[in-house]
């Protein structure tokens, strides 16, 4: 440990699309974070993110009192830790940390969606993942952005300009793409199509399970597209809660597990 004697805990969420690293202090506050495309070398990306997150936390590697990995590439963090948990477990851990009451977490990631339910004591009671299909995931949004020839990061702003949503009927990504093309051919407003694309994502997620009263959303898609949170709230007719850094919820959960293992 460095002279600063600052114990920090690291969570590495190595997702199929993005790698997120969270650094928390002993009180569980998020003090450092970094995100990067996972690319093809998961370990190298995780190292780069770890360095950046530690730097942001004003901490050094020696200050790391515990680390744990999660996500698709959780086996690729052995340069710092052998310990890992599932992303579902980590989402539940952090979800309860931020919202200590019965909640349903809706996490929309690059390749999969998850609905995780937690009771009032923080115990996970159930979870659901999307079936082996891209519908309702970040991959679906990427495909639709490509078909519409709009940058992915602009989808959120474009959707907000829509006045008349165009609903997509299919839950198959390929069939939806055909529907999008048909709407383009008919000269429909792109903003209305984009809104329909977001609507399709939410519909796919909402059909996975029932929701409890309090709903929390997380994941990269949510972080980059707050429009999807507003639309979900409208569809379920109640507020939807989001932590400050929704993309880092899994990584924070991993860091919390590391902190717990260290005796905190």
């Amino acid at each position: 440990m460095s002279q600063r004697n600052k114990a920090v805990y690291v969570g590495l969420d190595i997702g199929s699309s993005r790698t997120k690293v969270a650094v928390i202090d002993a009180a569980g506050h998020l003090i450092g974070r970094a995100v990067k495309k996972s690319g093809t070398d998961f370990s190298s990306t995780a190292k780069v993110c770890l360095d950046a997150a530690l730097q942001m936390a004003d901490a050094a590697t020696d200050d790391v009192a515990g680390a744990l990995s999660t996500g698709y590439g959780r086996g690729n963090a052995r340069f710092i830790t052998e310990e890992n948990k599932t992303e579902i477990g980590c989402l539940a851990k952090a979800g309860y940390h931020y919202f200590p009451e019965p909640i349903t977490i809706i996490d929309i990631g690059g390749q999969d969606n998850k609905i995780v339910k937690i009771d009032g004591s923080g115990q996970r009671t159930s979870f659901k993942m999307n079936r082996k299909c891209a519908a309702g995931t970040g991959a679906f949004l990427e495909e639709m952005a490509s078909r519409l020839d709009v940058p992915l990061e602009e989808m959120n702003g474009i959707a907000r300009r829509s006045e008349h949503m165009i609903k997509l009927g299919s839950y198959c990504t390929v069939f939806s793409a055909t529907e999008v093309l048909d709407n383009i051919r008919q000269g429909k407003n792109v903003a209305d199509i984009v809104k329909g694309v977001f609507h399709s994502v939410i519909k796919r997620v909402l059909e996975m399970d029932l929701l409890t009263e309090k709903v929390v959303m997380s994941g990269g898609v949510v972080a980059n597209n707050p429009f999807i949170v507003d639309m979900t709230a409208e569809l379920i007719q109640r507020p939807v809660f989001v932590s400050e850094y929704p993309q880092f919820v899994g990584a924070v959960g991993a860091a919390l597990y590391a902190r717990e293992a260290a005796g905190h």
């Binding site: 698709y72 599932t86 579902i88 477990g89 999969d112 979870f127 993942m129 082996k132």
Partner: peptide, 15 residues
């Protein structure tokens, strides 16, 4: 998907 689901399920049962 099978691996993630099974690992998360057993984790849930044990926790």
């Amino acid at each position: 998907q099978t691996k993630i689901n099974v690992e998360a399920f057993v984790e849930q049962l044990v926790e």
